[in-house]
Simulated scan of single mutants.
Amino acid sequence: MAFDASYVKSVIRALPDWPEPGVTFRDITPIFKDPKALRTVTDGFIERYVTSDITHIASIDARGFLVSAILAHQLNKPLILVRKKGKLPGDTISQSYDLEYGSATLEVQTDACGPGDKVLIFDDLIATGGTLIAACSLVQRLGGSVSEVASIIDLPGLQGSQRLQDSGVSVFSLIAY
């Protein structure tokens, strides 16, 4: 079954001036209310990665968790949670980064992956790339390699996917705005 980008785009909601004036937020939550849309999105990623050599899927807090959990289950891969600072128990490492409207810090547990692991990093959206670049850094600091970064949505006008590619990371998105 071919991925139906126009259908998925018809389900995603655009919220102008949120979280601040001038920003159009692409809200993926309607995908989770529409079983056909959720199946279309997850099948699009499963088809891409079912024969890949990835060993782990790392997912960004929090919307990324929803789709990546399905992918990890369907692809039979361990799921690494990359969370906001202070949300993970046990030993963690952290990485700070800039957002399009602020800054933040991500953490991952120190036993999440290691040398020889090939990690797919998943998030719902690529904007400026700061969050995903921070997640790549965390995986690499643990000894893993980043096979690819994947997202439902890419906002190429914000240059995030280009920043990732310029840093040597392959990028895949189902749709772009």
Results as ranks from 00 to 15, higher is better:
residue 13 R to W: 03
residue 62 A to N: 05
residue 144 G to K: 13
residue 125 L to H: 01
residue 58 A to L: 08
residue 157 G to K: 09
residue 21 P to V: 07
residue 32 F to E: 04
residue 103 S to A: 13
residue 171 V to R: 07
residue 131 T to I: 06
residue 95 Q to V: 09
residue 116 G to S: 11
residue 170 S to G: 09
residue 143 G to Y: 09
residue 9 K to H: 05
residue 136 C to P: 01
residue 65 F to S: 07
residue 39 R to K: 11
residue 64 G to C: 11
residue 14 A to H: 13
residue 134 A to C: 09
residue 65 F to A: 03
residue 155 L to T: 03
residue 134 A to W: 07
residue 118 K to N: 10
residue 56 H to L: 08
residue 122 F to A: 01
residue 132 L to V: 14
residue 22 G to Y: 07
residue 169 V to G: 00
residue 46 I to W: 02
residue 139 V to E: 00
residue 20 E to T: 11
residue 154 D to N: 14
residue 102 G to L: 14
residue 114 G to V: 07
residue 111 D to W: 09
residue 78 P to D: 12
residue 59 S to M: 13
residue 117 D to W: 13
residue 154 D to H: 06
residue 115 P to G: 13
residue 149 V to D: 01
residue 14 A to G: 01
residue 130 G to D: 04
residue 100 E to W: 05
residue 94 S to Y: 07
residue 166 D to Y: 04
residue 102 G to R: 13
residue 15 L to D: 09
residue 71 L to W: 02
residue 77 K to S: 04
residue 159 Q to A: 10
residue 5 A to R: 11
residue 172 F to H: 13
residue 120 L to Y: 02
residue 148 E to Q: 14
residue 54 I to T: 02
residue 108 V to W: 05
residue 159 Q to H: 06
residue 137 S to V: 08
residue 127 A to S: 03
residue 143 G to K: 14
residue 109 Q to H: 14
residue 58 A to V: 06
residue 35 P to T: 12
residue 87 K to D: 06
residue 100 E to C: 01
residue 137 S to R: 15
residue 27 D to C: 06
residue 16 P to F: 08
residue 25 F to L: 11
residue 86 G to M: 12
residue 160 G to N: 08
residue 64 G to T: 13
residue 109 Q to W: 04
residue 72 A to Y: 10
residue 5 A to E: 14
residue 80 I to T: 11
residue 15 L to C: 01
residue 78 P to M: 15
residue 97 Y to L: 12
residue 8 V to P: 00
residue 58 A to P: 03
residue 127 A to T: 02
residue 100 E to A: 07
residue 58 A to K: 13
residue 16 P to W: 09
residue 139 V to M: 12
residue 148 E to Y: 08
residue 31 I to E: 00
residue 91 D to G: 02
residue 174 L to N: 04
residue 124 D to M: 06
residue 106 L to N: 05
residue 26 R to C: 00
residue 16 P to I: 12
residue 148 E to F: 08
residue 171 V to W: 04
residue 62 A to P: 00
residue 76 N to I: 10
residue 85 K to Y: 11
residue 138 L to N: 02
residue 155 L to I: 07
residue 151 S to T: 08
residue 83 R to H: 02
residue 16 P to R: 12
residue 1 M to K: 14
residue 25 F to K: 11
residue 61 D to H: 13
residue 150 A to V: 08
residue 162 Q to V: 12
residue 77 K to Y: 03
residue 158 L to H: 01
residue 81 L to F: 15
residue 10 S to F: 02
residue 70 I to P: 00
residue 87 K to E: 09
residue 20 E to P: 00
residue 24 T to W: 01
residue 64 G to S: 07
residue 22 G to H: 11
residue 56 H to N: 10
residue 40 T to I: 13
residue 32 F to L: 14
residue 4 D to Y: 06
residue 68 S to D: 06
residue 42 T to K: 05
residue 54 I to A: 05
